[in-house]
């Protein structure tokens, strides 16, 4: 079927089987390999993207569900030379180690900070509870998100 949607701010249209996984569309024909596959059953959260602003597992969303909607992936947050404040915080505060879970966690955190600019630690932990990280013990991830929120607040008040 013909699927049209807004991907990282740009209108895109392509032909895809209606039951193709969004994950495969992103990584295949759309060439966005920043979204990772860790388990293929919605448990690890590595493939988290935002569908109309809401975090979803791209391995459990099919192409047909995306028609007419907006999808945001890690490539839509910033670029290597122009990182978003959240991405930058993950680099500075040690939120990424091996990096394979990082794009998914960034998407979950981005959704959190959009809805709740000043989250408490419990809210931060809740927001990434669907994203498994085996490297960090989560503490540096929590600190990275907290750091980004704090920086935003100080920018706005300053």
């Amino acid at each position: 079927m013909r699927i049209a949607f807004v991907l990282n701010g740009k209108k895109r249209a392509l032909d895809a089987p209606p039951l193709a996984r969004l994950l495969d569309l992103l990584r295949g024909p759309l060439g966005l390999t920043g979204t990772k596959e860790g388990c293929g059953e919605g448990e690890c959260g590595s493939c988290t993207v935002l569908l109309d602003g809401v975090p979803v597992n791209a391995c459990l969303v099919v192409a047909g569900q995306c028609d007419g909607r907006t999808v945001l992936t890690v490539e839509g947050l910033g670029t290597k030379d122009g990182l978003s404040d959240l991405q930058d915080a993950f680099v500075k505060e040690g939120g990424a180690q091996c990096g394979i879970c990082t794009p998914g966690i960034l998407m979950a955190a981005h959704a959190l900070l959009t809805a709740n600019p000043q989250p408490g630690e419990g809210e931060i932990r809740e927001s990434i509870a669907g994203n498994v990280c085996r490297c960090t013990g989560y503490q540096r991830i929590v600190e990275s998100i907290r750091h980004a929120a704090k920086e935003r607040a100080s920018r706005e008040s300053g």
Binding site: L32, T33, G94, G99, I100
Partner: peptide, 19 residues
């Protein structure tokens, strides 16, 4: 110091084998 491979990893441009 911030990790050297950090920017590519957070930008999603680091290339793992399946990429």
């Amino acid at each position: 110091v911030p990790r050297a491979d950090g920017p590519a990893k957070v930008a999603g441009t680091a290339r793992y084998v399946d990429d």
